[in-house]
């Protein structure tokens, strides 16, 4: 078993897609770096923190992107975002079977604040064009930095989400919430609290992700293969269903995951944090 979380973005790509099939566009040899970091005295990366290209997955052509959490937390800057937009526009043109996004990101890269914010919104629109064309966009989340901010929204714009139990999917990081409303609102150092609020198990129980896997690249690969036909058209009826589901959540009074799981009908909700992935999957998603 190889830990997905401990792999770099390129290692993940190499292991998720068919062996040797990844062909990178705008590779590091092109030295395409951020135009904004040098003046801040911050080191650049020759891929601006994301690798993109084409590959095959179980023999089918897929377009892929992987964000590198070790570079600026996977934050989206101008070039990073434009690479993702380019990949999605190319998918719209060339029509691969699916697009895989190996997301690991804190969201907008604050060093490129305004450009990053616009870039994330461009990614969102480009992704929705691909989805509207019936090409499924599959998001994999299992890196140590999770999938936050604008990328947390982008992930939920996709057709299908695969998470590991150590993956996290949310909007604001716990540190930001703690800084804003105090440690009693969200203790960012309480790891158990952080994971049961935003981690893969919670997201799977509540249906915010579609598959829950172990922190194992082979499991992520298998899950991605099963999702190749997971296109979910955005229709008015589908959005009404989604609206009702989200609206029902507002009936829950509180901010503690365990109470929410109980309210959702999960038996022995207190045991959830201790269950392994297989036992959790057996509980069923809501």
């Amino acid at each position: 078993m190889i830990s997905y979380a401990e792999c770099s973005a390129r290692e993940r790509l190499a292991l998720i897609v068919d062996a040797g099939s990844f062909h990178e566009w705008l590779p590091p040899a092109m030295r395409l770096t951020s135009p904004h970091l040098a003046q801040l005295g911050v080191p650049s990366s020759f891929d601006d923190g994301v690798a993109i290209g084409r590959a095959t997955l179980a023999g089918s052509e897929v377009f892929v992107a992987a964000q590198e959490g070790q570079f600026m937390g996977g934050g989206v800057g101008e070039v990073h975002g434009a690479k993702l937009v380019g990949l999605l526009r190319r998918a719209l043109r060339d029509r691969p079977r699916a697009v895989l996004l190996l997301a690991e990101s804190g969201g907008v890269r604050l060093h490129e604040a305004n450009a990053g914010l616009i870039a994330v919104s461009e990614v969102m629109r480009a992704l929705l064009d691909v989805r509207a064309a019936g090409i499924p966009v599959i998001v994999l989340i299992g890196g140590a930095n999770g999938c936050f901010g604008g990328m947390g929204i982008v992930a939920r714009c996709a057709d299908h989400i695969v998470m590991s139990d150590i993956g996290r999917l949310a909007m604001s990081g716990p540190e930001v919430i703690e800084a804003s409303h105090g440690v009693e609102e969200f203790d960012s150092r309480d790891r158990a609290l952080v994971w049961r609020t935003t981690g893969g198990k919670h997201r799977w129980l509540s249906g915010d992700c579609d598959q829950l896997v172990e922190d194992d690249v082979a499991e992520f690969r298998a899950a991605a293969i099963t999702a190749l036909d997971a296109a979910r058209p955005v229709t008015l009826a589908a959005l009404e269903t989604e609206h009702a589901l989200l609206g029902a959540r507002l009936g829950f009074d509180g901010n503690e995951a365990q109470s929410l799981w109980t309210a959702m009908g999960v038996a022995q909700a207190a045991r959830v944090p201790d269950l392994d992935v297989a036992a959790l999957r057996a509980l069923g998603a809501r």
Binding site: C157, D208, L239, L246, F252
Partner: peptide, 18 residues
């Protein structure tokens, strides 16, 4: 910026609006 909103999936609600 609240824990409750994160728990309830604020990113999913934002995506839904989008």
């Amino acid at each position: 910026l609240r824990r409750r909103d994160e728990l309830l999936g604020i990113n999913r609600a934002m995506a839904h609006l989008g």
